[in-house]
Design a binder for these strands. Structure first.
Lengths: 277, 277
DNA sequence: CTATACACTTGATATTCATCAAGTACGGGA
DNA sequence: TCCCGTACTTGATGAATATCAAGTGTATAG
């Protein structure tokens, strides 16, 4: 894995791509943007540009000032943090997701680092334009509030998961969530390398490995990235999933946008995508 | 300590007090409400009522549907969560703070329980009116977004504190934060009982007690609620405080509202209050 | 004043988790 | 094809934390 540090937004913009109309349509379809007026949306996308990044690119380091809202269109992005030579992963984003919205809204420094896990297409929208749009377009501002509220609730779930559960329980719930995410079948493939998963679950790679080994007592077998759950009941008794911590949604039921993932399901169509964790 | 479960909003409203004009002024002065138009603010406060609660009252249990935005005007409130017979404290609020804003914005169930720690005056504002105000008043909606962004960043700091630091380090940083909060002198008084503090710091009361005992090696002496820091340098070397985790502000520098606590200091006056943790 | 409740402390022990140190398996590049 | 880097595993050990079981002290109710 090669790690590339992006020097800054100026440097990025040099080889930025113009937004294709299909990309614009995907963004416009996001709950965050669908309520925006045409004028607001034009203003937002006018200063925006699309950029492709290879795997392992650091987009943003914690403490950096944030000038853009990022929208992940394809690939995946890790949000992490570090202190005193320790590191941890706070979230792994899947398309279509926005990130560092809170820092943009407050025009504040980033509290998390962002790094591509795979080759990714990322849309960058002017933070200044976003704040202007919020002040001028109440419908858009409302959508931003809902997105932020969804992000907040997502991380509250994460704190509860971390503080109330042990490592085995976190892994068990993660597996149940992934199983649902992949359609509910007995077998599925882990979406990330195990050391990244370990960091996301707040444990060391060694302990994740041992936890997987112990999982055989609950009917879980692992072969490379392939996980098979033979006795769902046993795993569920271990995991004790709780709708106030875990936000399970089956494939096809996964709306994009944090607000939509948090809100009670409504009538109307959903979009593909969804955030891991 | 006697625990009282409030049956529901209907029951509360029976012995609710009308809002005094001094209370209205305090609320209007909050960053969350100061940008609202007079019409929006009137609509918000029209359906609002003030209520006094004794210590130990459960205002809200996780999973409850949320009909009101709560504003703590005096006293203090614990936000907590539980799973599988374990409990943890996610925050302890001081006046003037709002809480469960995210659930209100999304019209979703509460993910946290709320309980008064001391006798508290709490203002309850209609969630429906709040959402209406956001959709109609872009300036107010912007203020809500900023408040939510501040809440989000606050809990991101909390996750980093929890996952990257050990118990001693968390306590050391808490003491440094409290010292700053109390004006920077050598001695100050802990604002909560130690078992509540332990829960906030994510440890058992026994381990907090031991951690305090070990702190004597770093020049910290504890006598009841009174803490004295003899060698600030030694404690600081242990704590390694980081502006990307800890949000220290001296007394008199503490603005109210999550957005203001997160944003870089601006020109202009601040208000009293502030949130623990 | 005494009794009781409860917060807090302290010690012994168990469990969980991290660290250090191998070793194995797999894949890309020469 | 072999080589080498890296992810992953497994074991041994140690540190951090939780649990259980006393104690002490203090404040309040009777």
């Amino acid at each position: 894995m090669i790690y590339i540090k992006v020097a800054g937004a100026r440097a990025i913009q040099q080889d930025a791509m113009p937004m294709r109309s299909s990309d614009i349509d995907r963004v416009k379809a996001l709950p965050l943007f669908s309520a925006a007026s045409d004028a607001t949306f034009r203003d937002l996308t006018a200063g925006g540009f699309l950029q492709k990044f290879p795997a392992g690119t650091t987009l943003l380091t914690e403490g950096d000032t944030v000038d853009f809202l990022y929208v992940l269109l394809s690939g995946s992005v890790e949000l992490g943090a570090s202190w005193n030579d320790k590191e941890t992963t706070l979230a792994i984003l899947q398309p279509v997701s926005t990130f560092i919205l809170a820092a943009v809204v407050l025009d504040a420094d980033a509290l998390m680092s962002a790094r591509t896990v795979e080759r990714s297409d990322i849309l960058m929208l002017s933070g200044e334009a976003l704040r202007r749009g919020m002040r001028e377009d109440a419908q858009f501002g409302f959508a931003v509030s809902r997105e932020l509220a969804g992000c907040y609730r997502g991380i509250v779930r994460s704190v509860k998961n971390q503080r109330l559960r042990g490592g085995m329980e976190r892994l068990a719930n993660y597996l149940i969530q992934q199983q649902a995410h992949h359609g509910g079948g007995k077998s599925f493939s882990l979406p990330h390398e195990k050391r990244l998963l370990a960091s996301l679950l707040g444990m060391t790679p060694e302990n994740l490995s041992r936890a997987f080994a112990t999982m055989s007592e609950y009917g879980v077998t692992v072969s490379g990235p392939l996980v098979t759950i033979a006795w769902p009941g046993a795993l569920e008794r271990l995991a004790k999933p709780d709708p106030l911590i875990d936000n399970h949604r089956r494939l096809g039921e996964i709306p994009s946008g944090e607000a939509q993932r948090e809100q009670r399901p409504m009538a109307g169509e959903f979009h593909e995508g969804g955030q891991s964790y």
